[in-house]
């Protein structure tokens, strides 16, 4: 039985590798809180390659404009059609930045329109309970970026389940530290990552 591999999507435009510490941190949380068989290291998958279809959950982030190539667009559309789960996080934490504008355009064009997820969505109860919806990040609260707290995540819904989860809360910055440093936190801020993975594996 294959183990869960946290895979980061590599795309040709922009800076796909802007959050290199996130995979290790998410993997640490999966191993720490669940009994899911998780690979100790993540994988990097080129969106234009067939390797996309070996990893049903893909994490995509960056700061810069995203323009999919034709091969990337084809693969993303097919990946979602076959039941894959794409988690996209805006590493800028802004509301009208280059990454946000371009990646949401690409998602809409390739997969379908993004809709606002209600804050009582099952995603927020998939493992840990987040009664108020998506947990806020320190970047939302300390005045960096656009000084806004984004109240909702967005998604593309296919057959009643989230096929593409889009966040502009900048979890890529929030989770971008070495897992050993979790001991300095009063509350582990990567718990929501566990919900994302459990949701992808069970819905």
């Amino acid at each position: 039985m294959s183990e869960f591999v946290f895979a980061t999507a590599q795309y040709e435009s922009g800076d796909w590798d802007s959050a290199p510490l996130v995979p290790a941190n998410v993997i640490d949380s999966i191993a720490r809180y669940t009994s899911i068989d998780v690979a100790p290291t993540g994988a990097i998958v080129a969106l234009s390659s067939r390797d996309v279809f070996r990893h049903p959950l893909l994490y995509l982030t960056g700061h810069l404009p995203v323009r999919f190539t034709a091969a990337e667009r084809t693969n993303v559309a097919e990946f979602v059609r076959r039941g894959g789960f794409l988690f996209v996080d805006d590493h800028n934490h802004d509301i009208d930045g280059a990454f946000h504008k371009t990646v949401t355009e690409e998602i809409a064009r390739t997969v379908g329109p993004l809709v606002e997820l209600p804050n009582d969505h099952v995603l927020y109860r998939a493992f840990f309970h987040f009664a108020d919806g998506p947990p806020t990040t320190s970047h939302e609260l300390n005045g960096w970026g656009d000084n806004l707290v984004h109240k909702h995540l967005h998604g593309v819904i296919r057959d009643g389940r989230i096929a593409v989860l889009y966040s502009n809360k900048d979890y890529s910055s929030e989770w971008g530290y070495h897992p050993d440093n979790k001991r300095f936190l009063a509350v582990d801020n990567t718990k929501f990552a566990v919900n994302v993975v459990v949701y992808a594996l069970t819905r």
């Binding site: 869960f4 009994s35 899911i36 057959d159 594996l201 069970t202």
Partner: peptide, 23 residues
């Protein structure tokens, strides 16, 4: 089963085929 890609996609396949699925 456990939460794995295999169980996820078995449930998905059966639901798509019209079965009502408990899991």
């Amino acid at each position: 089963g456990r939460a794995t890609w295999e169980t996820k996609f078995i449930v998905a396949a059966l639901e798509e085929a019209g079965w009502l699925v408990d899991a």
